[in-house]
Each structure stands twice: as structure tokens, then as C-alpha cells.
């Protein structure tokens, strides 16, 4: 592992150095003050940066917490491959959790719709996994710049009984003093990347040479167009509508989730530099490609109150 880009001068750190140092400080606070922390690993670029930071924070020891992947069984194949590789490389325990109710009912985006699919696999799945393992702090890669309702999120986000986010019980965070304490039945979500932007994450991935799934880079892929979004047909489970034939287009992803719910963008960016250049020129927001956010106004905020990550 290499260290962050060189400093501007002896005492002036670059913004990436500051962000990295802050994230490492936060990760060390969680490890020191929480009884059973876990790192939520969802394989995307933010998770990749987060895992890298966790490994740096405790080097030369491995991070003192396991990885948790709350699986939906509908991720891209390449994501599962990277997940297993990174778990092995980091020497961390990988816990994969699938909501048994969703497994039994065979919940999928086609028959159940994105709202039910996301709620059962992700929201309920996460709550079940945290309860099952009695984790008191779940470390995630959410950033404040991602979505309007995240701008006011705390670094240590307090969750009451049932993992509900209650705006009245959020704690003031002054200086770099965090208060991660909880009573039985309460938990914390911890966001070490709170102050990072999407571009910061990519700059960091480039500077640190962090492995990311190749879906972020443009390649010819079989694509169908639905509700204005380009959906990549990643496996045989994709239900094609009558008359719908996948066409090969050169696309990549800005954000990843379940493949039938992730919209690709047309792009020629096949390298990290090209991806970063494209993003700098971009005039649309990151979550535009996510079908799950479009369900209703304020949907992210509502999901969060219900315990969604």
C-alpha cells in the first residue's frame, strides 16, 4: 500500500491527505469505542475506498472488525468475484447475509418491483444481519454529497430501537470528538467518507491504485433500454419483454447496485484517467442512474428513517 499523494509543503496537506487522515481517525475511534463494529462492504467504489482506508488505519495489523455484505443475489457477477478476492486479500472475515424471507419468496426486481426488492433484501436484510450478530456499529461508505437528504447526516449517525433514524436524537459533532455510545437496542451507523465527494473518491482510487470492479470502465456490453435507463443483461435471469433484444453498446457505470436496477451510461472511458476526466466534465448527478431513488419524493430520506443504509 502506498501513502496518499505528496504534501504541498511540510505543513500544508493536500485535501486528499486531510480527507484520508480524517477517515482513518474516525475508523480508529469506532474500533476503540464500539463493542462490535462491522464494515458494510457493498463492493462499489466507495466500499473499495473504505476498505482500503480501514486497512491503512490499522496497518500492520488487519482491521479489527469483519466485513459484512448484505447480499441481494442480484449483483453483477464481476462484483461477487471482486468481493471474494478482496476479502481474501485483506485477511478479514467476510460475512454474507441474505434475508431468508427474500430467499424463500424468491424476491426479485421483475416480479416484486424495485421498492419491495430493495426493502426486503437490503433494508430488512441489513437490520436482520446487524441484530443477528449483535453489531453495535455499522461502518458504511455513504457520502454527504451523494444526495440532498445526506447533507445533514452525522459521521456517527445514531439509530434507535428498530434501527430507526430519529432526527431529534442525533448528536452534535464538534471538533473531531465523536460520541459513539449506545444503550442496548440502539446502534450507530458510521460514515468515515462523509466529507468526500464522488471525485475525491476517484482521485483517491487513482492515487492509491485501489482495485475496483471493471464495470466502472467502458466496454461493449449487452444492453436493453427501460424507463430511459440502459440496463445491462448480466445473466440469464434477466426477463426480456416481448420484442426486446439486447443490443451491444459501449457503456460503463457510475454507480452500482443490483444489475436489473442499475442504469449504465454511454461512455468511451476505459481507464481511470478517462473516467475521472469524464466525471469532471459531467453535468449530471451520480444517483441519476439509480432506479430505486425515483420511487417517490424524499425517498432516500424515508428509506433512511426505516433503517435503510
Amino acid at each position: 500500500m502506498s501513502d496518499a499523494p505528496s504534501a504541498l509543503s511540510a505543513d500544508r496537506l493536500t485535501h486528499l491527505q486531510r480527507l484520508e487522515s480524517e477517515s482513518i481517525h474516525i475508523l480508529r475511534e469506532v474500533a476503540a469505542e464500539c463493542a462490535r463494529p462491522v464494515l458494510l462492504y457493498s463492493i462499489g467504489k466507495d466500499s473499495a475506498a473504505l476498505l482500503h482506508l480501514a486497512r491503512k488505519a490499522f496497518h500492520p495489523a488487519p482491521p479489527p472488525f469483519p466485513l459484512l455484505h448484505v447480499d441481494t443475489t442480484w449483483k453483477f457477477r464481476a462484483m461477487y468475484a471482486l468481493r471474494d478476492r478482496m476479502a481474501a486479500e485483506s485477511g478479514m472475515e467476510l460475512i454474507v447475509y441474505e434475508n431468508p424471507e427474500a430467499v424463500e419468496r424468491g424476491v426479485n426486481p421483475f416480479d416484486h418491483g424495485s421498492a419491495v426488492h430493495t426493502d426486503l433484501w437490503k433494508t430488512q436484510g441489513l437490520k436482520q444481519a446487524l441484530d443477528l450478530h449483535r453489531f453495535d456499529a455499522a461502518i458504511g461508505g455513504a457520502r454527504r454529497d451523494e444526495e440532498a437528504s445526506r447533507a445533514k447526516e452525522r459521521v456517527f449517525s445514531f439509530r434507535g430501537p428498530g434501527h430507526r433514524w430519529d432526527p431529534r436524537r442525533q448528536r452534535p459533532e464538534l471538533w473531531s470528538l465523536y460520541n459513539p455510545r449506545v444503550s442496548p437496542g440502539e446502534t450507530m451507523r458510521v460514515f468515515p467518507l462523509s466529507n468526500w465527494t464522488e471525485l475525491d473518491v476517484w482521485d483517491y482510487i487513482a492515487a492509491e491504485n485501489i482495485p475496483v470492479v471493471n464495470l466502472y470502465f467502458a466496454a461493449p456490453r449487452p444492453v436493453v433500454k427501460r424507463e430511459g435507463a440502459l440496463i445491462v443483461v448480466d445473466d440469464a435471469r434477466m426477463r426480456l419483454k416481448p420484442g426486446e433484444t439486447p443490443q451491444t453498446r459501449t457503456v460503463r457505470f457510475r454507480t452500482l447496485g443490483c444489475y436489473p436496477l442499475s442504469g449504465a451510461i454511454e461512455s468511451e472511458a476505459t481507464t481511470l484517467d478517462a473516467v475521472i476526466a469524464e466525471m469532471r466534465a459531467s453535468r449530471s448527478s451520480e444517483r441519476q442512474g439509480r432506479l430505486i431513488d425515483r420511487d417517490q419524493a424524499g425517498s432516500m430520506e424515508r428509506k433512511k428513517q426505516e433503517g435503510y443504509f
Binding site: P5, L8, R12, L13, T14, H15, L16, R18, L19, L199, D203, A207, A277, R280
Partner: peptide, 9 residues
């Protein structure tokens, strides 16, 4: 504009 990775905060 293209921010440089060498910028400060």
C-alpha cells in the same frame, strides 16, 4: 474547471 489533486482544503 479541472481541479488538481494537489489542491488544499
Amino acid at each position: 474547471s479541472a481541479p488538481s489533486p494537489q489542491r488544499d482544503l
